[in-house]
């Protein structure tokens, strides 16, 4: 039990620091702190140009949606990166439990994504004069935690696929674009065609964004408990799927002697 917890927390953090060692402040600040603010400004001004929705709608939607960058890219790198560093075989040969080994790496990713979402929400809110009551912030933090957990589940699926597929950066970019459309960050879900709405219900962040908007408008966590439960369920589904895929990939790579082969 203690070993499992050690692998989960210390192992997860060590692996994250080792595999994402290139994330210096020179990269982190422009890419993960400044870029989301400009994404928010872009959509706020498109919204104003089209005469649709309030600034707050885009600020909250895009701040939560941009958390998908660390969730997808960092989670993929935190596992599939082992292959590029030629250390995957050493990881897979250990007797460590696979659940804490793989899932533990998600914790720093979630923390990183939360920082990105909260920072962009705070800064763009200040820039655009969005008035979110102080009392709403703890609730928003809880919503963002559940939303980033949910999206990290999708990142875990990407990480598993990354053990086989070479161009995961391209795949993650496509997923980021799809989340921009389908999560309702910029277009209300009910205005999308029926088939798109059906997809929206099944992707991470959709319910989280909706819940964050309601909490910012004064709703309590109890009021949005249904949305939060849906978001958590979506996240759990992707996490289980991602973990299962990782085990399948591990099994297959052992069987085919293809560990670390790009």
């Amino acid at each position: 039990m203690t070993t499992g917890l050690r692998i989960f927390f210390i192992g997860g953090l060590t692996a994250y620091r080792g595999l994402i060692n290139w994330l210096s402040p020179w990269i982190f600040i422009p890419t993960l702190l400044v870029a989301p603010v400009f994404q928010i400004l872009l959509f706020v001004f498109i919204g104003r140009s089209a005469g649709v929705q309030s600034d707050e709608f885009y600020v909250i939607g895009n701040a939560v949606q941009y958390a998908s960058i660390p969730c997808l890219f960092a989670m993929t790198q935190a596992i599939a990166g082992e292959r590029w560093q030629q250390t995957l075989a050493y990881v897979l040969v250990t007797p460590a439990g696979r659940l804490p080994l793989f899932i533990g790496r998600a914790m720093p990713v979630i923390a990183n994504a939360m920082v990105v979402a909260v920072f962009s929400l705070l800064v763009s809110g200040l820039l655009l004069g969005i008035d979110i009551p102080v009392s709403s912030w703890p609730g928003i933090a809880v919503v963002i935690f559940i939303a980033t957990f949910s999206c990290t589940g999708l990142g875990l699926v990407c990480a598993a696929v990354g053990l086989r597929v070479r161009e995961m950066a391209v795949t993650n970019n496509i997923l980021f674009g799809l989340l921009l459309i389908f999560t309702g960050a910029n277009v209300p879900i009910e205005q999308l065609p029926g088939w798109m709405q059906a997809i929206s219900e099944r992707v991470p962040l959709t319910h989280g964004i909706q819940a964050a908007r309601e909490v910012a408008d004064g709703a309590t966590l109890g009021d949005v408990s249904g949305l939060l439960a849906s978001e958590a369920a979506v996240g759990l589904t992707y996490t289980v799927l991602g973990y299962a895929l990782l085990r399948v990939m591990e099994h297959e790579s052992r069987k085919r002697a293809s560990i670390q082969i790009a």
Partner: peptide, 14 residues
């Protein structure tokens, strides 16, 4: 796609 849906639903369609 996003811009299209935003303009379409706005009061000033582009």
């Amino acid at each position: 796609t996003i811009a299209h849906y935003m303009f379409e639903s706005g009061s000033r369609p582009g």
